[in-house]
C-alpha cells in the first residue's frame, strides 16, 4: 500500500460522506463464488460459517474489492419463518412454495428470534469471524430483506399484491410481524460486527408498486426499521428504477441508495447529491457474457457518470450471478483500481 492509499474502510466512509476518496470504492457483492474458491457445492459451502469466512477472505484477496458480504442467501429469512428452501448446483438457493397459503394465516404468524435459527446463527458467526480476521479495515455488509418486500417470498407476489389492495388490516398485521423480525435481525448482525446493513427492498421501486401506495406502506416500514437499527443502512431497491422516488427514499435515513442500469447514473447521482450516496449500477445479468474489454468499458462508463465522492461502484442487483467468470471479475476489479483514481 502506498502512503496515500486508504484502507477499504476509509475509502468507503469517505465516499459515504460525499467526499472523494483515493479511488472510488468497489463492492463486489459475491455470495456463491466462495464455493468455487473452496471447490465445494453451493449447499456444502453455506453449511458452515468457516467455509463462508474462508471464501470471503479468498475472494477479497483475489479481487481486492472494498467489502466483505456476509449474506448467505436471501431465502434464509424464509427458512427462519419455517418456509422451504430449494437448493441448486448453479444458482442461489430459492424460496419454495409460499408458506402463507391464505391471507388469514397471517393472524398466526410470529416473528422468529434470529439467534434461535441455525441458518441465521451461521450468518452471525460469519460476520463475527470476518470481523475478527479483518479488524476494522474492511466494511462487513450484512443484509436484511425489507418487511414490505419479504412477503413476495412469504406468500407469493400475486397474492401479496391482492393483499395490498384489498386487505389493509392483514397487511398492517404482516408488516408489524416483519418489522419486528427485521429490526431484531439487523441489530443481531450489528452486534456480531456488521459495519452496515443492506436493507433490500425491491418493492420500493416505482417499477413494482405505485409510489402513492408505497409511501403509505413500505416507506413507513422502512422509516420504522431504519430508525431502530443500531448502525447505518444502505437502501437497495434491487434492479428497479428510483429517480421519481429519490426525495422520499433519501429521507428514510439510509447512507446510500442503489441505482439501476435502467436509469441514467449521472441523473441519479445529481438527484442524490448532498442527500444520499449512490451505489451501482453494473448490469449483473449481462455481466456473465461480457468480455474483459467490455467489463473495463462498463466500469469506465459508470465511473465517468458518477464522478466525485458519494459513489460506490457495484452491481445493480445485489448479488453477482454464479455464472459470472473469474476473468470478468478480475477485469472489473482491475479497471476500478486503475480508472477510479482520484484526479
Amino acid at each position: 500500500m502506498c502512503p496515500t492509499e486508504m484502507t477499504s474502510m476509509e475509502r468507503v466512509l469517505t465516499a459515504l460522506s460525499h467526499r472523494e476518496p483515493d479511488r472510488a470504492p468497489l463492492f463486489l457483492l459475491l455470495t456463491m463464488h466462495g464455493a468455487k474458491e473452496l471447490d465445494l457445492s453451493i449447499r456444502d459451502y453455506f453449511s458452515t460459517a468457516e467455509h463462508v469466512i474462508e471464501g470471503q477472505l479468498r475472494l477479497r484477496a483475489r479481487y481486492g474489492h472494498d467489502c466483505f458480504y456476509s449474506l448467505l442467501y436471501a431465502a434464509a429469512e424464509i427458512e427462519a419463518f419455517g418456509g422451504e428452501v430449494i437448493w441448486y448446483e448453479d444458482g442461489p438457493p430459492n424460496s419454495g412454495a409460499p408458506f402463507i397459503r391464505r391471507p388469514e394465516d397471517i393472524l398466526d404468524l410470529t416473528a422468529p428470534v434470529p439467534e434461535d435459527i441455525p441458518c441465521l446463527r451461521r450468518t452471525l458467526e460469519v460476520i463475527a469471524g470476518l470481523k475478527e480476521r479483518a479488524g476494522g479495515e474492511v466494511p462487513i455488509i450484512g443484509v436484511v430483506i425489507a418487511p414490505f418486500s419479504l412477503p413476495v417470498m412469504q406468500m407469493g407476489f400475486p397474492s401479496y399484491i391482492e393483499l395490498i389492495y384489498e386487505q389493509p388490516a392483514l397487511l398492517r398485521r404482516l408488516m408489524a410481524v416483519n418489522q419486528e423480525f427485521c429490526v431484531a435481525w439487523a441489530n443481531a448482525q450489528f452486534r456480531a460486527g456488521a459495519t452496515a446493513i443492506c436493507y433490500f427492498d425491491p418493492l420500493a421501486s416505482p417499477d413494482m408498486i405505485p409510489p402513492e401506495i408505497f409511501c403509505q406502506t413500505g416507506l413507513a416500514a422502512a422509516r420504522h426499521c431504519l430508525s431502530r437499527f443500531s448502525g447505518p443502512a444502505v437502501m437497495h431497491i434491487g434492479s428497479g428504477r428510483c429517480l421519481s422516488m429519490i426525495k422520499e427514499l433519501a429521507a428514510v435515513g439510509a447512507v446510500a441508495l442503489s441505482a439501476s442500469v435502467l436509469e441514467d447514473l449521472t441523473e441519479v447521482k445529481a438527484a442524490c447529491k448532498g442527500k444520499i450516496a449512490v451505489a451501482g449500477n453494473l448490469n449483473g445479468i449481462e455481466m456473465r457474457r461480457w468480455t474483459p474489454a467490455q467489463a473495463e468499458e462498463k466500469v469506465r462508463q459508470a465511473l465517468a457518470a458518477a464522478a466525485g465522492g458519494g459513489f460506490i461502484l457495484a452491481d445493480n442487483h445485489g448479488e453477482i450471478p454464479w455464472q459470472v467468470s473469474d476473468e470478468v471479475l478480475l477485469a472489473i476489479a482491475e479497471a476500478a483500481r486503475r480508472l477510479g483514481q482520484k484526479r
Binding site: I161, P206, D207, I209, L262
Partner: peptide, 14 residues
C-alpha cells in the same frame, strides 16, 4: 407505460 416507468407492476397485474 410500465416500460417507460409510468405505472407499476402491481397495476399491470391487477
Amino acid at each position: 407505460r410500465w416500460e417507460r416507468g409510468g405505472v407499476a407492476l402491481a397495476q399491470v397485474y391487477m
